[in-house]
């Protein structure tokens, strides 16, 4: 799985360059998120623009990525595609995470 971190004044953007977060790669996702969020404090936005499928393992891994944050860090989500959006709504995880329509809009709100 490829996660690409970009540092912006508003937040660290983590772009998921994969079409799925599911049973085959959920553990890898969780470990890579641990590495990325271990390097930096503050706000993280997980850009799910390219992710068209998530299963319960992937959902669990996103929850785990939030639980492994330190005080002073936060994890928000952006660009949920239809299946991902449905899984978050059905499990009411959409009430736990701040969810944005577009990651680039969030980082554009604070200029360099």
């Amino acid at each position: 799985m490829e996660l690409i971190a970009e540092h912006h004044p508003a937040a660290t953007l983590i772009r998921v360059n994969a079409s799925r977060i599911d049973a085959p790669n959920a553990l890898q996702f969780k470990e890579e998120m641990r590495t990325l969020t271990g390097r930096q404090d503050g706000r993280f936005i997980l850009d799910l623009q390219k992710v068209d499928f998530i299963d319960s393992s992937g959902l669990g891994a996103v929850v785990a990525a939030m639980k492994q944050l330190r005080p002073g860090q936060s994890l928000e989500l952006a660009a949920l595609q239809p299946i991902v959006d449905k899984v978050f709504r059905l499990t009411r995880m959409d009430s736990i995470f701040a969810i944005h329509d577009d990651a680039d809009q969030v980082i554009a709100t604070v200029k360099d």
Partner: peptide, 20 residues
């Protein structure tokens, strides 16, 4: 129904099947 505030990392699978 799983309680989202418990931040459980599993236990959603059968719930999703039953829901849909």
């Amino acid at each position: 129904r799983p309680d989202p505030t418990l931040l459980s990392e599993g236990g959603y699978g059968w719930f999703l099947i039953r829901s849909l």
